[in-house]
Design a protein around this nucleic acid. Structure first.
Lengths: 243, 243
DNA sequence: GATTGTGAAAGCGTTCACAGCC
DNA sequence: GGCTGTGAACGCTTTCACAATC
């Protein structure tokens, strides 16, 4: 994993911190919390109050022991013989993920993808309002997408400072992506959601989550090719393998 | 019918099918192959002929031992004391990933995201031409995006059969995603790139790669929150990034 | 009886370190 | 001397299985 999370200072004593982060939450667990949150929020919206790890596991498509172990890293929030209180769990997971306040994001790149992302309502609704969209191409400046006006990339520092933006989204072509990252970092952004297919060079402590659609397709291609190699033709497809 | 787009510069094809199938390539390795491929292709394009695992590791942002181990699952393609032949490696990785021919994809959903995806040139250029775009909303039918006309979702089976599509992309709202998946599977698609934030219920053997942008942002939020908790306040976040 | 929380076991993935080869 | 290929060590993740608890 080439993720670059701030080098943790020497293992801090957990003596009596703010009750939470009593335990170190493994990265694998952190990556599943949004999934659990989604399932639990859905249950909550349906008026369900109690839920067992088995039910969560079923909804999330994972093993029940994994659910219990994951949740146990956040604290002892379940009741033996009963299960978990849905809305309490939702609250705790949101707390753990830092979703107790909004995280404004700035999008770099107002092309097809940047436009689709900023028009995407999910962002704002889930607590990540679009604080700004910038592009280097002056022909794109001024357009309004999802209610936000496209501004020049030189205004990045101003936008980041004004809205206290911590998270940037890079939706520019590969050639422009490193420059976009440099500008984001110089502006004070410390987390980057990266859509361009290059490996970013950023200072230690800057978190980068790469999302590469071509890679995803290539991984699917691998599995298709495996399927084909194991004697299944296009006409009759079915293998007992898992994704 | 899938055309042969047999790749790179003069690559000797010593592709020993029988031997390749015998090695089990770990999933973690498969997920990195596209990354290596990208780095190597870039080197190849720059006219570089030989490369060491150290150099690949540097470009890919991973450990060199990991590169060597990953590549060793594909076969013994390096030369001790020298390194790897770039174009030969490119050829072998493409072979392993099944990129020796095109994989037409069908996109379900002609909204913002579906449009951005189908207009995205990277898909076609990387061997994943858009064989069709479908939507259930008749007001969207007929529009031409990225050179492909939007058709009604009922035509899915026809499109999949005609172009022998194995990979589907779901770019519809969450509420419509399970139905989209069901239709894709019924049409004969066996791999799905999934953008809607739900857990799909699909038959065993169907490969699904979920891409959830909200989850990615939430994971970044977690790390930002950790950062804040360890003493850096939101107000003074943009500290010297030299640690 | 039901279900959590968690040690222990098993399984994977990463990294080390060095023999083997150029 | 340089670099690969890989056994072995290590660390992380998943799963099992069951005591603890309601």
């Amino acid at each position: 994993m080439q993720r670059d999370i701030s080098a943790s200072k020497g293992a801090p004593y957990v003596g009596d911190m703010a009750e939470r982060s009593r335990r170190r939450v493994p990265e694998a667990t952190v990556e599943r919390l949004p999934l659990y949150l989604r399932c639990l929020t859905s249950l909550d919206d349906s008026g369900v109050n109690q839920v067992s790890s088995d039910q969560i596991a079923d909804l999330a498509g994972v093993n029940a022991a994994k659910v219990r172990k994951d949740l146990s890293f956040l604290g002892t929030y379940g009741t033996r013989g009963v299960g978990y209180d849905v809305s309490y769990l939702v609250y705790q997971i949101r707390q753990e993920l830092g979703l107790n306040h909004e995280w404004p994001v700035v999008i770099v790149g107002a092309g097809n993808l940047g436009q689709a992302l900023s028009a995407h309502e999910g962002f704002g609704q889930k607590g990540f309002p679009v604080a700004g969209i910038v592009d280097i191409d002056s022909s794109k400046i001024g357009a309004v997408i999802g209610g936000v006006r496209v501004r020049h990339i030189d205004e990045l520092p101003k936008i980041v400072a004004a809205k206290n933006v911590a998270i940037g989204v890079i939706a520019v072509p590969a050639e422009a992506a490193q420059d976009a990252a440099d500008r984001l970092v110089r502006s004070g952004v410390t987390s980057i959601l990266m859509f361009a297919p290059i490996v970013l060079d950023v200072p230690a402590g800057i978190a980068v989550r790469p999302v590469d659609l071509s890679s995803e397709l290539q991984i699917l291609s691998y599995h298709e090719q495996k399927r084909a190699a194991s004697g299944v033709t296009a006409a009759r497809r079915s293998a007992p393998a898992t994704a």
